[in-house]
Write a protein that binds this DNA or RNA. Structure first.
Length: 815
RNA sequence: GGGCGGAUGGCGGAAUUGGCAGACGCGUAUGGCUUAGGACCAUAUGGGGAGACCCUUGGAGGUUCAAAUCCUCUUCCGCCCACCA
C-alpha cells in the first residue's frame, strides 16, 4: 500500500496557509532566528537548484521552529532585470505584466513544495514601494559623496546594450549573455565601495560561520597588496614616472621601465614643447603600437599564451633613483593602466615575465638577490628568473642583507631620500551602477542647464517608471529643475539590479513600513541573519555589495550590525549525468514532473539524503524511488499503529529499542545543528529498520514501539513535513507537528552496561569480547589474552606489550 | 602563476581529538508472495581464495602499538582569481 501524497500534501499546504502557521511573531521571549535563502529572479519556473536551496533552508527553519525559536523565514522576488524586457518584446506586452505573471507561477510552485514561508512579508523589488527606497538610499549616498558621476572607460556589452560592473565581467565576457565586453567612454554613476575597502577586508575576520573559500574569494577580489611607489625621473624632461612594486628589494636590478600604452605621460613626452631637447626617434613605430593595442579587446590583450610584445621609446631614458643607472623605457600591452600606476619597473633577473621580455629585446639583466641554494656566477647562466628569497648583492649598502629584511630597510631609506613611498594598492574598483535599461529603478537625478546635477527631493520619491516601455516618453524625461524650476531633464538610466538585492533582507523585517526603507527597531530585533543559504556563484557580487550596503546603513545609524550574514551555507550544484543541468545540454529535470509522480516530500527527502548540502548532487531517478520507498515504509508503520490503543506496556522487553531511539535523537539533533542532513536521514532509516526487525504486526501493539514511531515522525518532519503532519494526526497527536517540541534524548537510556571490546593483534582485528563497563583495565587485558581466538594467534609468540583504550579496544603487540 | 577544495566498492556517499573501513541508500543476486510481471517482504553483497587466511581508502615513502585520518614527496580532477607589477 502506498500513501496518497496528492491528497495529503494539498491538505496540509492549505492547513498551514489557513492557520498562518509560519507567521513570524514580532515580539517574543524566545530567542530569534532569521533564516534566509537568496531570493529568486522570477523566471516563472523553479529549477532543481532552487528546490535544493529552499529545501535546505526550509529544514533549517522548521527545525528551529521545533526548537522553539522565534523564526523569521521570508521570501520575495528579485524582479527587475533584463529577461522581463526581452520577454515583453517577444510577447508584445509589458515587462511588469510578464514579471507579475511569473511571480504568480513561482509562488504556486513554492507552495507545492511546502516551504514554511511567512508569506505576509513577501517583498517584490519592482514594486514602487520597494524601489522607492533604492532611490532614497542612493540619495543618502549622493549627499555623502558616495554616489558620484564620472566619465570613465567602462565595460560595455553590445548585446545587452548596457554597461557592466567589473564584477559582472567574467573573463572578458558578459556574465549574463557571454558576449565579448568592450571598453567605452561614458559618463556614468558609481558607488564608492572603495571607501569601505579596508572594512570590507578587515571584517571578513568576523565571519566565522562562512566557508573559507568564499572569504578567500572576497579577499582576492578586494586584492590588497602592500608595496612601494618609486619615482623615476626622465632624463632631460620635467616628468616623473611613478611605478608600484611589491618587490622593492629588487630595485637595484631594475634595468628598464615599461608603461601601459594608454599611459598619459606618453603624450607629454611626445609633445616637443614640453619635452624640451628630448625626442622620440621612432615616434611612428610607437604610435602604431598604441593604435594596435587600442583595437584589441581585453580578452585578446590579456591572452596569457600570447608572446609579450613591446616597443621602446627610443632616445628617452629614465634614471633608476637608487643607483643613477640610465635605463630604457618601453611600452607594452601586458602592463595595464587600471592596475597599480600603469607603469612597472622591470627586474628581469627576478621576474619571469621581465626575464622573457628582456631576452626577446636583448635588455640587460642584473642579479641583485643571490640564490643561496644554487650559486649562479654570471647572468649568462640564467635560464629563468629567480623569484625566491635570498641575499642582497649589487645593492649598495644593502648587500648581504636577507631580501625580506632589505624590503623594509630599502623602503625606509627611499622614503628618507624622497625617491619612494610605502603605499597599498587594491584591485577593488568603485561600483558602476548605471544601466541603459528600462526595467529597473530610475536614478533619482535631474539635469538642469543652470544648476547641473540636482537630486530629486525625498518628498518626490518614488520616481516611478513610466508605464509604457517607450523610454524617451516626454512626460517622464522633461521635468522642471527642483532648484530653479527651469526646463530640465531626468536621468534616463536605471540602477543595476544588484542594488535591489543589497538590502532586501532588511526590508523583510518590516515589509510594509512607509516612513523609511525599514523600521529601525524591527531590524535591530531580527538582524543579523542567523543563517543565509544560496549558491556559490554569488560569492563575490551579491555578498560583497550586501556587506557594503549594510556598513553604509550602519554609518547612517539605521542598523546595528556590521555584517549582515552571520553564517553562510553555499549549496552545491545539481548535476545530471555528471554535468550541470542546463537547457543547452538538454539534461534538465523539471521538479514539477517529480512532484506529480512522487510528491514534494519524496523530492525533498531525495535532495537532502543524496549528498551533503555543500557537495554536488547527482540527480538519480532510481534513488528517488528509494526515498519514495522509505516514506511508504514509515507510512505503513504509522498506519498499523494508528488503530491500536497502547494499553499494554512492554517497556522492559524493549529497553534495547529505547536505547536506539534515544541514540537516534542525539545523532539527528547533532547532525541538524551541523547541516549534515544526509547522515541524519540515514540514522532515522536505521531506526526504522530496527523497528521493522523487532516487531511483527501482532506485537506492534506496545507503547515503546508507538513511541519509537512517534519519534521517527518528529525527527523527519522538518524534511518531509506533509506526510509527517498526517502521521502525527493519525497517531492521535494534535496538529501541527511543525511547531511541536523537538524530541529530547536522555543519556540514561543511551548508556549501556555491556560493551563490545575490539581485540587487535599488532593493530589487526582478531576478536571481540563483551565486557561490563566497570570491569578494571587489568581484568579486561586478561580477558583479551585468554580469548580463544587470541590464544591461537599468540601461540609461539612473545607478547611485548598490551595497549588498552578504555571501553574501546585492546591491542596485543607481539615481538 | 596564485588561492581553495577533492580522490574511499558497480554508483551516491559514511567513518577525523588516529582505534572494527565501507553506515545508510541505489544497483545486483537468491528466496518468499504472485497465473505472470510489478509492488512488497527476507537474506546476501569491497576484491582474491576451496579454505585457513590475505589484500584494499589515487600513488610512493614516513611517524605510530594502531593511519582513509598526521607528516613528506607525487599523480590526477574540480572551482575561483590572474600578464596584479
Amino acid at each position: 500500500m502506498t500513501y496518497n501524497f496528492k491528497v495529503i500534501e494539498e491538505k496540509w499546504q492549505k492547513y498551514w496557509q489557513d492557520n498562518q502557521t509560519f507567521r513570524a511573531i514580532q515580539k517574543s521571549d524566545k530567542p530569534k532566528f532569521y533564516c534566509l535563502e537568496m531570493f529568486p529572479y522570477p523566471s516563472g519556473k523553479l529549477h532543481m537548484g532552487h528546490v535544493r536551496n529552499y529545501a535546505i533552508a526550509d529544514v533549517v527553519a522548521r527545525y528551529k521552529w521545533m526548537r522553539q525559536f522565534n523564526v523569521l523565514h521570508p521570501i520575495g522576488f528579485d524582479a527587475f532585470g533584463q529577461p522581463a524586457e526581452n520577454a515583453a518584446i517577444k510577447n508584445k506586452s509589458q515587462p511588469s505584466t510578464w514579471t507579475y505573471a511569473c511571480i504568480d507561477l513561482m509562488r504556486q510552485e513554492m507552495r507545492k513544495l511546502g516551504f514554511s514561508y511567512d508569506w505576509q512579508r513577501e517583498v517584490v523589488t519592482c514594486d514602487a514601494n520597494y524601489y522607492k527606497w533604492n532611490q532614497w538610499i542612493f540619495l543618502r549616498m549622493f549627499e555623502r559623496g558616495l554616489a558620484y558621476k564620472k566619465p570613465a572607460s567602462v565595460n560595455w556589452c553590445s548585446s545587452c546594450a548596457t554597461t557592466l560592473a567589473n564584477e559582472e565581467v567574467i573573463s572578458g565576457k558578459c556574465w549574463r549573455c557571454d558576449n565579448e565586453v568592450e571598453q567605452k567612454e561614458l559618463e556614468q554613476w558609481f558607488l564608492k565601495i572603495t571607501e569601505y575597502k579596508d572594512r570590507l577586508l578587515e571584517d571578513l575576520k568576523l565571519l566565522k560561520g562562512w566557508p573559507q573559500r568564499v572569504i578567500a574569494m572576497q579577499e582576492n577580489w578586494i586584492g590588497k597588496s602592500q608595496g612601494v611607489e618609486i619615482y623615476f625621473k626622465i632624463e632631460g624632461v620635467d616628468e616623473i614616472i611613478t611605478v608600484f612594486t611589491t618587490r622593492v628589494d629588487t630595485i637595484f636590478g631594475a634595468t628598464y621601465i615599461v608603461l601601459a600604452p594608454e599611459h598619459p605621460i606618453i603624450s607629454n613626452i611626445k609633445n616637443p614643447c614640453l619635452a624640451g631637447r628630448q625626442e622620440i626617434s621612432n615616434i611612428k613605430e610607437v604610435d602604431k603600437y598604441i593604435q594596435k593595442t587600442k583595437k584589441e579587446s581585453k580578452e585578446e590583450r590579456t591572452d596569457l599564451v600570447k608572446e609579450k610584445t613591446g616597443v621602446q621609446l627610443k632616445g628617452v631614458f629614465a634614471i633608476n633613483p637608487v643607483n643613477g643607472d640610465r635605463i630604457p623605457i618601453y611600452l607594452a600591452d601586458y602592463v595595464l593602466m587600471e592596475y597599480g600606476t600603469g607603469a612597472i619597473m622591470a627586474v628581469p633577473a627576478h621576474d619571469q615575465r621581465d626575464f622573457l621580455f628582456a631576452k626577446k629585446y636583448k635588455l640587460s639583466i642584473k642579479i641583485v638577490i643571490r640564490n643561496t641554494q644554487y650559486a649562479i656566477r654570471n647572468t649568462e647562466e640564467l635560464t629563468e628568473a629567480f623569484e625566491g628569497d635570498g641575499i642582497q648583492v649589487n645593492s649598495g649598502q644593502f648587500d648581504g642583507l636577507d631580501n625580506n629584511k632589505a624590503k623594509v630597510e630599502i623602503a625606509k631609506w627611499m622614503e628618507e631620500k624622497k625617491i619612494g613611498k610605502r603605499t597599498t594598492h587594491y584591485r577593488l574598483r568603485d561600483w558602476l551602477i548605471s544601466r541603459q535599461r528600462y526595467w529597473g529603478t530610475p536614478i533619482p537625478i535631474i539635469y538642469c542647464q543652470k544648476c547641473g546635477i540636482v537630486p530629486v527631493a525625498d518628498s518626490d520619491l518614488p520616481v516611478r517608471l513610466p508605464e509604457k516601455v517607450k523610454f524617451s516618453a516626454k512626460e517622464f524625461v522633461d521635468v522642471p529643475c527642483p532648484k530653479c524650476k527651469a526646463k530640465a531633464h531626468r536621468d534616463t538610466d536605471t540602477m543595476a539590479t544588484f542594488i535591489d538585492s543589497s538590502w532586501y533582507f532588511l526590508r523583510f523585517c518590516s515589509p510594509c513600513f512607509d516612513k523609511g526603507p525599514f523600521e529601525k527597531e524591527e531590524v535591530k530585533y531580527w538582524m543579523p541573519i542567523d543563517q543565509y543559504i544560496g549558491g556559490i556563484e554569488h560569492a563575490i557580487l551579491h555578498l560583497l555589495y550586501s556587506r557594503f550596503f549594510t556598513k553604509f546603513l550602519k554609518d547612517l545609524g539605521l542598523v546595528d550590525t556590521v555584517e549582515p550574514f552571520n553564517r553562510l551555507l553555499t549549496q552545491g550544484m545539481v548535476l545530471k549525468d555528471g554535468a550541470v543541468m542546463s537547457k543547452s545540454k538538454g539534461n534538465v529535470i523539471d521538479p514539477d514532473s517529480v512532484i506529480s509522480k512522487y510528491g514534494a516530500d519524496t523530492l525533498r527527502l531525495f535532495i537532502l539524503f543524496s549528498a551533503p548540502p555543500e557537495a554536488e548532487l547527482e540527480y538519480n531517478e532510481r534513488a528517488i524511488e528509494g526515498s519514495w520507498r522509505f516514506l511508504n515504509r514509515v507510512w505503513n508503520l504509522a498506519t498499523q499503529l494508528s488503530d491500536v490503543s497502547c494499553q499494554m506496556s512492554d517497556k522492559k522487553q524493549n529497553i534495547e529499542l529505547q536505547r536506539i531511539v534515544h541514540r537516534t535523537i542525539k545523532k539527528v539533533t547533532q547532525d541538524f545543528e551541523e547541516f549534515k542532513f544526509n547522515t541524519a536521514i540515514s540514522a532515522i532509516m536505521e531506526l526504522v529498520n530496527e523497528i521493522y526487525k523487532k516487531f511483527t504486526i501482532n506485537s506492534l501493539q506496545c507503547t515503546v514501539c508507538k513511541e519509537a514511531v512517534r519519534v521517527v515522525v518528529l525527527l523527519l518532519s522538518p524534511i518531509v513535513p506533509h506526510i509527517c503532519e498526517e502521521m502525527w494526526q493519525m497517531l492521535g497527536e494534535k496538529p501541527p507537528i511543525s511547531t511541536a517540541n523537538w524530541p529530547v534524548f536522555e543519556e540514561a537510556f543511551i548508556k549501556t552496561e555491556i560493551l563490545t571490546i575490539i581485540i587487535q593483534i599488532d593493530g589487526k582485528l582478531r576478536s571481540k569480547i563483551e565486557a561490563g563497563v566497570n570491569i578494571p583495565d587489568e581484568e579486561i587485558k586478561k580477558m583479551a589474552l585468554n580469548d580463544e581466538k587470541i590464544q591461537k594467534w599468540i601461540a609461539g609468540k612473545r607478547v611485548k606489550e598490551v595497549i588498552l583504550v578504555k571501553h574501546k579496544l585492546v591491542n596485543v603487540v607481539t615481538q
